[in-house]
Design a protein around this nucleic acid. Structure first.
Lengths: 201, 201, 201, 201
DNA sequence: AATGAATGAGCCTTCATTCAT
DNA sequence: AATGAATGAAGGCTCATTCAT
């Protein structure tokens, strides 16, 4: 007897479902998945506990949707940037823009990245979602930069490497802030690294 | 009435405490912190549930010690490498060694890094431990490389950046393995990046 | 504010109420009372959840009506048989007919008997309905057989006993089917028992 | 990760497990399986909710054990009677004893029979337990009576039929008590039926 | 010091019933 | 009359922590 999960078509219902997802997004972000319970999510979304299970199979199902939302939020601005990219352009200039973009994306989605990424290790489904996102992003950007003649060889590897570098830098920048580090210098190092990656050979 | 936590001096007790920490290490590594319970830890350690609370204030306290253990395991081989470093040496050679070292360290401590790092965001204490480790490592290595005349300016920033790059690469290398990526090429990119970082200017 | 329960007069409403009762009948029959929920009943009946409470006070109220329906289904063919009974007749012949009738009635209403009878013990209302049915049936049959001069003394006791025997046999026959039992022989035993009951003294 | 269920060896633990089973027995008996919750069981047993799951996998598991207990209680006195049976004996005398025995067994285990039997229809496991019990009982008694030369042909069918008759009579006698029935006469009918079953041919 | 049974708060989920439309 | 989304109390179960021995 498979319970039916509402697949909301009407505006009000979609809104409610989204409110639950956003509540999950916020709470997972603030306290992590395991420190958030369904009552909190419902309360934050302004709905009753019961109705949550009208829209989601279980708590994990909320997580899935939150993950998707996160992916979209992170992916979109970056893809937009590359879509609107017109040759010729200054490499360093592009890199700077990207760095700032990733930092701000990371900042706005503070916490959720950690909360989700942490589940990657124990949850195959979330892991697959993450890997899928990286795949898509890498391939799209590599393709775009190849077409623009910016990258020739090893485009995918370079793009992926660049993404890793950006990711970890953004995280560092937003969260860790070690006292003895001059983050302007750090940022320059990152930028240089990416520029030389693009201009290689 | 502050409960007394044993600070074990006797061999047998120390051993028992260590067995608990190791059990925690393994289990957190395998299943994550929230999917591990104290009964499992005690069983794996070969001790009773009750005695766990003779050595640790609470479950979080085990986590703290596991984190410390992790730090030591990861830190030691790297520090050893730098300690035994004698000038003159070939930069690329050194970088290659380090890359391999970090990969193997990451591989051996598979899982635990994720499990711990994930808690960083919701747990200030763990976060502080992580940051503290990075601080120590960065400063020591930066100092060493400065003394060896390998790095001059911005030593700390460079070292920290290098560590980030290595970390994320190792993780990528061990876990994610995207199909379309040629990891030999990826590795070369990383190596090049680090070499040029050191040889800068 | 006593909620008003519709006492449907119009054809469409009566139909709807009956569809709910039948849905309950089927579902209780298939899965038992406690494993059936009101949403399932409404869905099976092709009505909305809400309207169920327009026709029934609560879930138990559906049960009451289902019980009545069951009683009717089981009672009618038996009463018909006795109504159409004309003396003289062969006792054994009559008994055989009845046995077959009860078996088929039990088979057709598979499940619901169990589902309902089980509630008898914890639910006084259902219990009363069951007892009421047995009373009515017993008295009518006893009366009929007395008039036909088939039974003289202890008619009610005999009829009731016969009903019990038939009931438990039918149940056995339909459900339990133990491997080592030859049910033709079993049936003969039952028939003999009933025949001798009627022909007693 | 299969949770370990304590298999209690020590007296105190066995006692506790038994107290839980007995609490289940009583409560299922009084209110049925679905109207009894684990908190009630724990409270009645004088233990905490949690420990219930130290002895039982889940609520259903308690049901299983309650069922076994019931079977034993019902089976034992009857088997004892037949074990101590020595030829020659008066058939009617034996039947009377049995009837009284079954009535008292049914009375003492008031309610639980219904509560359990009701689950038979929706729960294959309980069903199997019930059928298994009937099998065992039937075969043992049939065997005993055959050895004693009391029954010759169709022993199993006769015994099973007798058990059904006794069962339904006992239930009638204990619970339903229809006003217009003279239960002494009823009892005589049952006795006669069984006697003639035994003395058949 | 050590054991492991015991505690009970808290979590996820279901479902009879209500209510806005 | 009718809909079906919404409510929230209650149930089964887990697990960090305590306690009798």
């Amino acid at each position: 007897m498979p319970k039916t999960i509402r697949n909301p078509q009407q505006e009000r219902s979609i809104d409610k479902k989204n409110r639950i997802i956003n509540a999950g997004y916020e709470l997972f972000s603030e306290n992590g998945y395991y420190n958030t319970n369904t009552v909190q999510i419902a309360k934050r979304a302004g709905v009753s506990t019961g109705i949550v299970y009208g829209y989601f199979r279980d708590k994990k199902d909320i997580l899935r949707e939150v993950t998707s939302l996160y992916m979209e939020k992170v992916t979109k601005p970056i893809l937009n940037l590359f879509d609107s990219l017109e040759a010729p352009f200054d490499t360093r200039d592009l890199v700077c823009k990207i760095v700032d973009l990733v930092i701000s994306a990371h900042g706005e989605n503070a916490g959720i990245h950690e909360a989700l990424h942490s589940l990657t290790h124990t949850d195959p489904e979330i892991s697959a979602q993450f890997i899928g996102l990286e795949d898509e992003l890498t391939l799209k950007i590599a393709d775009r930069l190849t077409r623009l003649n910016v990258l020739k060889e090893d485009a995918k590897e370079k793009v992926h490497f660049a993404m890793d570098v950006l990711q970890s830098f953004a995280h560092e920048y937003i969260y860790d802030h070690h006292e003895y580090i001059d983050y302007d210098i750090f940022k320059t190092l990152v930028t240089d690294c990416l520029v030389s990656l693009i201009d290689k050979k």
